[in-house]
Design a protein around this nucleic acid. Structure first.
Lengths: 144, 144
DNA sequence: TGCATGTCGTTCGAATTCGAACTACACCGG
DNA sequence: CCGGTGTAGTTCGAATTCGAACGACATGCA
């Protein structure tokens, strides 16, 4: 249980720092940064809404809101899905790329200073493996 | 970086499950459960507002809101602070105790099933130590 | 004592989140 | 082709969050 409390505290503290950093840096919030990152890593830099919502662990309505915000800011574009008329693809724009490149260094610095540099390499590898395992279990039992 | 992404995902997934479980179980939310727990662990089951806000990693205004909600529900009581006329003490009531006892088993079960049981004892100890270290660093560099 | 600075908790408005209800479309068995 | 069931994305209202501004009190120094 000690582990869980430490886990939650660390998560909250880090998110606090990250949001603070991103706000000083430019107009992005943490959820928005995360969203853009997923799009940047996706094939053709586009993703289905439902898939994106799952990846970001947010509700579909919440995703609709954030994508709308980013679309107004010109960082993301909506596109119809060829294979499914119901589907919408969120696509990263050139401006979105730029915003991500601009915000990335500060973001990486905060994560590095506050998490990575506090641990040695073994601890870090163990942490990634351990949490990867927990995440896999959580995803595999999704709502069932 | 893999570690940080896994960290964030796991945290979000677990919070999702916990909130879902608590909602099915009875009227508490996760932040409220966390708040009551801190009070239950505190000497005389009471804490200063500012101290509580720090412990829960939330804003002071956010804490005011949650304490007001819990006060309306009768689970928490506000008390003046003897040593500082500005201060307010949040105090756990008997009903608050009851609510905590009622919600605890389900909460513990979810954390156990989804995190603790997925790891062996070494991993768990390492995780607690590792995150404890990161948390200590984050707290020691608080806003400075 | 009197003033300057800082802290405590609250209030306020804006932004973000969620779940439920809804519309449009896909898919399957007849 | 056609109804029945399920999924995709959005809209809506309610709840929660934050930061900034505020009034009340504490603390240090002259």
């Amino acid at each position: 249980m000690r582990a869980w409390v430490a886990f939650l505290d660390t998560s909250n503290l880090l998110l606090q720092r990250i949001n603070q950093q991103l706000r000083e840096d430019g107009g992005l919030t943490q959820p928005q940064y995360e969203l853009l990152t997923r799009l940047a890593e996706a094939p053709d830099q586009r993703m289905r809404m439902a898939e994106l919502a799952l990846a970001l662990v947010t509700s579909r309505s919440g995703l609709t809101y954030q994508v709308s915000q980013l679309e107004k800011a010109g960082l993301v574009r909506r596109e119809a899905c060829a294979s499914d008329d119901r589907g919408i693809l969120a696509v990263l724009t050139a401006d979105g790329q730029q915003a991500l490149l601009k915000a990335a260094p500060g973001h990486l610095r905060v994560v590095r200073e506050n998490l990575i540099d506090q641990l040695d390499r073994d601890q870090l590898v163990t942490l990634a493996d351990t949490l990867g395992r927990a995440r896999a279990h959580l995803r595999s039992t999704g709502n069932g």
